[in-house]
C-alpha cells in the first residue's frame, strides 16, 4: 500500500514539475516582451520612424534609414530566395527519390544548419572583397542564401500535400507538365507556400551576423544597392554596445520595432496557413 502511495506521490510530483517547466519556458518570452515595451515604448514617437539617427548628445532622432534599409534588404533576399527556393522545391517534389533529389534535399538541410556568420564571411569574400566596398546587394544576397533552404523545404512539403489525382486530372486534360505545375499544383499549394515564405522572411528580417561585413550599416540615408546600407538589427547592435544612455534607449525602441515587424509577419504566416485548400484535397 505504501509503495503504491509513494508511486502516486511521485506521479503527482513529476507531473507538477512539467507545469513548472512550462511556466519557466514561457517566462523569458514574457520578460523580453515586457522589457521591450517598458524601455522601448517611450522612445517610440512618430519621430522615430521619420527621423535620421542623431549624433551623441543630441536628444531624439530615429531610425528611418534603418527601417527602410531593412525593408530593402528583405526585398533583395526575397527576390533571390523565393524563386530559387520554390523552383528547387518543385524539383524535389517531382523527383522525390532520385539520386540528385536526395542529394539536393540533404545539402539543403546542410545549408539550413550553416551558422549565419559563415554565410556572412562567404558573401564578403565574393561580393565585398572583389569590389572593395560594402553593399546592400551583398547583404541582401547573404540573407537570400539563408532563405533558400527554408523556402525549398516548405515548398516541397506543401506540394506533396497536393493530391496526386489533381496532377493526373490536369495531365489528362492535355496540360503540359509545366502548366500542370504552375496553374494547378503550385496554385493549390499556394497558401502553404506563402506561409513558408513568410516564416523565412520573419527569420531573416532580424538577422544581424550576415550583415556585419556585407551591408555594414550606414548612419546616413542610402537606398543605393552598391553602397553600404543601414539595417535595424545592425543599428540595434551598434547602439546596444555603445556607452551612451541615449543610444541605449534608441536600441530598445529599434528592438521593439523589429520584434513588431517579425511578429506581424509570423502572425500573417499563421493566418495564411489557416486558409489551406478545401475538402477536395483529401
Amino acid at each position: 500500500m505504501s509503495a503504491l502511495r509513494r508511486r502516486k506521490a511521485g506521479n503527482v510530483f513529476m507531473l507538477g514539475l512539467t507545469y513548472v517547466a512550462a511556466v519557466l519556458a514561457t517566462l523569458p518570452l514574457l520578460f523580453i516582451l515586457f522589457h521591450l515595451l517598458q524601455k522601448g515604448a517611450s522612445t517610440l514617437t512618430p519621430d522615430f520612424f521619420t527621423n535620421m539617427p542623431r549624433p551623441v548628445g543630441e536628444a531624439g532622432g530615429g531610425m528611418s534609414n534603418a527601417i527602410v534599409g531593412t525593408l530593402i534588404l528583405i526585398a533583395i533576399a526575397a527576390a533571390i530566395g523565393l524563386p530559387v527556393g520554390i523552383g528547387a522545391g518543385l524539383y524535389l517534389a517531382e523527383k522525390r527519390g532520385g539520386a540528385l533529389a536526395m542529394t539536393v534535399r540533404y545539402l539543403s538541410d546542410v545549408l539550413n544548419g550553416l551558422p549565419s556568420i559563415v554565410l556572412g564571411i562567404f558573401a564578403w569574400q565574393f561580393l565585398v572583397r572583389p569590389f572593395g566596398n560594402f553593399s546592400a546587394l551583398a547583404g541582401g544576397i547573404a540573407l537570400g542564401a539563408m532563405m533558400i533552404p527554408l523556402v525549398t523545404r516548405t515548398t516541397e512539403e506543401m506540394i506533396r500535400l497536393v493530391p496526386n489525382s489533381l496532377r493526373e486530372a490536369a495531365l489528362a486534360l492535355g496540360y503540359p507538365r509545366w502548366r500542370t505545375s504552375m496553374s494547378v499544383i503550385l496554385r493549390t499549394a499556394l497558401p502553404g507556400i506563402v506561409t513558408g515564405a513568410l516564416v523565412a522572411v520573419a527569420r531573416i528580417a532580424g538577422e544581424t551576423a550576415p550583415l556585419l561585413f556585407t551591408a555594414f550599416g550606414n548612419q546616413f540615408w542610402s537606398t543605393t544597392l552598391d553602397e553600404p546600407i543601414a539595417a535595424l538589427p545592425l543599428q540595434i547592435f551598434a547602439y546596444a554596445i555603445s556607452p551612451y544612455d541615449e543610444w541605449h534607449k534608441q536600441a530598445w525602441a529599434g528592438a521593439l520595432v523589429l520584434i513588431v515587424i517579425v511578429l506581424i509577419i509570423s502572425l500573417a504566416a499563421r493566418h495564411a496557413t489557416r486558409a489551406r485548400f478545401g475538402s477536395a484535397a483529401d
Binding site: P163, A169, A170, A172, V184, R187, G278, A280
Partner: peptide, 26 residues
C-alpha cells in the same frame, strides 16, 4: 482522348466556370 477518374478531381482553387474552361485556357 479525354479521361475522368474514379474520384472526382475538380481543381479546388478554381470556380465551377474556370474548372470547365480549364482545358480551353491552356
Amino acid at each position: 482522348v479525354g479521361m475522368v477518374f474514379q474520384r472526382p478531381t475538380p481543381f479546388p482553387t478554381m470556380s465551377i466556370r474556370d474548372n470547365v474552361a480549364a482545358g480551353l485556357k491552356i
